[in-house]
Nucleic acid binder design. Structure first.
Length: 560
RNA sequence: UGAGGAGUGGGCUAAUUGGUAAGCCACCUGACUCUGGAUCAGGCGAUUGCAGGUUCGAGUCCUGCCUCCUCAGCCA
């Protein structure tokens, strides 16, 4: 928390500090208010980090509140997954777990009060009629013929709505504000509708449900929230938020402050589009490692700390922006580099025979687990006469600046020996099927006593000891920075990356078969990988690639 | 033609609130290295949307304009 003083203050923290200094508030209370109708994604993580972060920094608390006012869309499956995700991200709401549905009775009483005050009325227009009366963006709306209905009649109707006397859609309760307002949200917004549906928490106790605008501000006030942080699209709703709290005698009047939601390049972050990807089977589910959901990132092997650091770095402002995924990838590598244990694995093997190495000999060589962290210790890796090397690490005709293995060239096998390529074996089709090499017994462990150097160090695996596994090589889900950038008539699925997943058989050093689930490791020189939480079996280990290592050779090669 | 909001290097964000544009990501060089990783050093790159004005001095103040985003659910 000491690094927060170095970080420049965003506009929200600036406001909060001013409120604390002026004595407007003596503490801060925030809330993260998801609707339990879907999975959390990295855009939500921005909000979670903000709300819990701010509360933590100023010695306050952050509530977790489910905005569950629409029983037709919500489900306990989502309230469970949301709690799991927030906890996994590293945040704790203590005993401050709330549900908007906890306030249904109170919300009803407040609504009755609004009617009594002549500030709300039961409207009996149909949904279509209400829309027609609402006007347009440029033309004012017209008053509903029921707008001047008596307080008594509205009270009676509202009570009977609650009692279940009417069918869905027969009546609604509307706030009486201003049908001519330039802000459409103020044109007598609906605050209650009839919905004879089973609610995941209140069951069948209610058949009328309050709308978001009416519920959210009152919930905030009841919980004594000081700063209600939400995204830009609610800016237009703030006058309504304030109107409701001004009209009612609520415990307090929180301040709503809006910030720009996160947009990430090469991905989509809207519940609707994410749902499309799942429903249309473009991915295997909400936790598909290619999904920007918290569940997907977790399964991909991204550590929660990386997500938190990412959210801290992208800043906070009011302008719409598109954050480069490279920023996320950087945060992931940065975190993993420090903590991920190293192992060797070959993804695209080429067989190598060390001709001068005894046929029946096996040596156990020491290998460092993490050069960044001496306390991680070391392990032992078996070495023998026949090895697998990465096919990419050999070129029969090496281009300039290619330092890896080629005929006549000497390289180091990591933690093992120097070897020199002496021959290439090809099949009838002319494809290389095997490399013949000689090793220098004097270089055991990786150093030459005569001090000679090699230009590169390669990873390897002993063929006889290798464990076969499935490796899922993930890449960006979309080929375009903005997936919505499509020609007329197209849609974002047109930009799906056909190569977002490549499945290969990998050959692992034996120790990798025992990696604990939930830990992300580094396959040296290749990238970070983690055991798949769903499909891993002892017979067939499955590793997901979290992110590749930075690859400067690939860049050199690309430039030609 | 309504209401609300936003424009700072390629991307994201900052500027003690009128004092001469900073950081991160990306990119490029070099050093170092038993990961072409990491690390370190350096570099490229902004007349702060445009045009005026006030001022000794403007990203910050004033005027006009331009561009972009959000809103017409009985969704949140």
């Amino acid at each position: 928390m000491t690094e927060t003083e170095k970080r420049p203050k965003d506009f929200i923290r600036t406001i909060i500090e001013a409120d604390l200094r002026s004595g407007k508030h003596s503490g801060v209370v925030t809330r993260f208010p998801p609707e339990p109708n879907g999975y959390l994604h990295i855009g939500h993580a921005k909000s979670i980090c903000l709300n819990f972060g701010v509360a933590g920094e100023y010695g306050g608390v952050c509530h977790l509140r489910f905005d569950d006012t629409n029983p037709t869309k919500e489900d306990v499956e989502f309230v469970d997954s949301i709690q799991e995700d927030v906890r996994w991200l590293g945040f704790d709401w203590g005993d401050k777990l709330f549900y908007a549905s906890d306030y249904f009775e109170k919300l009803y009483d407040y609504a009755v009060q609004l009617i009594r005050d002549g500030k709300a009325y039961v409207d009996s227009l149909s949904a279509d009629e209400i829309r027609a009366y609402r006007g347009t963006l440029t033309e004012p709306g017209r008053n509903s013929p029921y707008r001047e209905r008596s307080v008594e009649e509205s009270l009676d109707l509202f009570a009977r709505m609650r009692a279940g006397e009417f069918a869905d859609g027969a009546h609604v309760l509307r706030a009486k504000i201003d049908m001519a307002s330039g802000n459409i949200n103020m044109r007598d917004p609906t605050i209650y509708r009839i919905r004879k549906a089973h609610h995941h928490r209140t069951g069948d106790a209610w058949c009328i449900y309050p709308m978001y605008d009416y519920t959210h501000c009152i919930s905030d006030a009841e919980e004594k929230i000081t700063h209600s942080l939400c995204t830009l699209e609610f800016e237009d709703h703030r006058p309504l938020y304030d109107w409701v709290l001004d009209e009612l005698a609520t415990p307090c009047h929180p301040q709503q402050i809006e910030f720009a939601r996160l947009n990430l390049s090469y991905t989509v972050l809207s519940k609707r589009k994410l749902l499309r990807l799942v429903a249309d089977k473009h991915v295997t589910g909400w936790d598909d490692p290619r999904m920007p959901t918290i569940a997907g990132l977790r399964r991909r092997g991204v550590p929660p700390a990386a997500i938190r650091n990412f959210c801290e770095r992208i800043g906070l402002a009011k302008r719409d922006s598109l954050v480069d995924v490279a920023m996320l990838e950087h945060a992931v590598r940065e975190d993993l580099n420090a903590v991920a244990p190293r192992y060797m694995a070959v993804l695209d093997p080429i067989r190598v025979v060390i001709e001068n190495y005894p046929d029946d000999q096996v040596e156990e060589l020491d290998a460092v687990n993490n050069p960044e962290d001496p306390s991680a210790g070391s392990r032992v890796v078996p070495f023998s006469r026949v090895l697998y090397l990465e096919r990419d690490d050999f070129r029969e005709d090496p281009p300039k600046k290619f330092f890896r293995l080629s005929p006549g060239r000497e390289v180091r096998l990591r933690y093992a020996y120097f070897i020199t390529c002496t021959g290439v074996v090809k099949n009838d089709a002319g494809e290389i099927v095997e490399l013949r090499c000689l090793y220098d017994p004097e270089t055991r462990g990786g150093d030459a006593p005569d001090g000679r150097k090699v230009k590169s160090t390669l990873h390897w695996v002993s063929a006889a000891h290798a464990v076969e596994a499935e490796a899922r090589l993930y890449d960006r889900l979309f080929t375009k920075e903005d997936p919505d950038d499509v020609p007329e008539g197209g849609d974002f699925t047109d930009n799906l990356n056909p190569a977002s997943l490549a499945v290969v058989t990998a050959f692992l050093e034996p120790a990798l078969a025992a990696v604990a689930p939930g830990t992300t490791v580094q396959f040296e020189r290749l990238g970070y990988f983690c055991p798949d939480a769903r499909d891993w079996t002892a017979e067939r280990p499955v590793f997901n690639r979290t992110v590749t290592l930075r690859d400067s050779w690939a860049r050199i090669e690309q430039k030609g």
